[in-house]
């Protein structure tokens, strides 16, 4: 049988999915063991035991200086910023996308602006944000908002344009005015698309969050990683990175499930 026609069965699929992860893990463990055998003081590739110790210290023991559980405090601080950034960006992106995508007069004014604004590298204006909004929470949330709103808005604008003209005409023959047409036809059709846009923007949102925390912060997952970097504390950094990855993956999964549960018509409607 040709390779292109061979498909994995259900059990094969799971084993194949696990395989690269297992290989990476084995490679790491082997590398770590080899380095530590040569020099027990090596910090670059800590062993599992060392990392478990670090997690124990960060997550389950009070920090001697502050009396807090650092991992959970960092997680709460970061998730709060991320959630606020995502929520504001979603609301703004949805509004701008609908305005630009379904009202031609607004689209004429907004589309070119959105295109240009989305080309500004958000990290390049981070100093501006710090100057304007101060070093507090606001500037970090604003970085996420400015970073992903244009992407979401442009995606939703495109989706709003793709709604068949027939549907908009039909709604008008059913007695809709512009506002109720948006409320009952455009908005509900764009909501599942908004969740998908958020899912795609999640990666950038985390990027901007970590960057903002690394530069100016006193807590947060990104802050901690960049803080312990000074001591080459790979035993803390690696578990933190794994934890961030897990959180991001769970959010992605949650958004996917939510899309399917809240909009059962969506997948079928695309066929």
């Amino acid at each position: 049988m040709r390779l292109i026609n061979r498909k994995p069965g259900p059990s094969w699929r799971i084993s194949l999915a696990m395989l690269p992860f297992a290989l990476l893990l084995v490679a790491y463990l082997a590398g770590s063991a080899a380095r530590l055998a040569e020099n027990p003081q090596d910090k670059l590739l800590p062993s599992v035991v060392q990392m478990a110790d670090a997690v124990e210290r960060m997550a389950f023991k009070e920090d001697p200086r502050s009396g807090r559980y650092l991992l959970w405090d960092d997680t709460a601080a970061s998730l709060k910023r991320l959630a606020m950034g995502l929520a504001i960006a979603a609301a703004l992106g949805l509004s701008l996308g609908i305005l630009a995508g379904s009202l031609p007069l607004f689209g004429a004014a907004l589309s070119p602006l959105l295109t240009v604004v989305s080309m500004i590298p958000p990290l390049a204006i981070l100093p501006v944000l710090f100057i304007v909004f101060g070093l507090d929470e606001l500037s970090k949330v604003m970085l996420i908002v400015l970073g992903i709103t244009p992407v979401i808005a442009r995606d939703l604008e495109q989706r709003a344009r793709e709604i068949p003209a027939e549907l908009l005409i039909k709604a008008q023959t059913l007695g809709a005015n512009t506002w109720t047409l948006i409320l009952r036809v455009v908005l509900p059709q764009l909501l599942p698309r908004l969740l998908i846009a958020l899912q795609l923007a999640l990666g950038s949102a985390w990027l901007f969050l970590i960057a903002a925390e690394a530069i100016a912060s006193t807590d947060g997952l990104g802050y901690r990683i960049f803080l312990v970097r000074r001591y080459l504390a790979m035993d803390v950094i690696l578990p933190y990175v794994a934890w961030i990855t897990l959180l991001a993956w769970l959010m992605d999964l949650g958004l996917k499930r939510l899309t399917r549960a809240a909009f059962p018509w969506y997948e079928g409607g695309r066929a």
């Binding site: 027939e166 549907l167 039909k170 709604a171 023959t173 036809v185 509900p188 018509w265 409607g269």
Partner: peptide, 14 residues
């Protein structure tokens, strides 16, 4: 004026 098109005549989300 009522209209029925060949396609896209009904709202998929309702």
């Amino acid at each position: 004026r009522g209209i029925v098109f060949q396609r896209y005549s009904v709202l998929p989300h309702l």
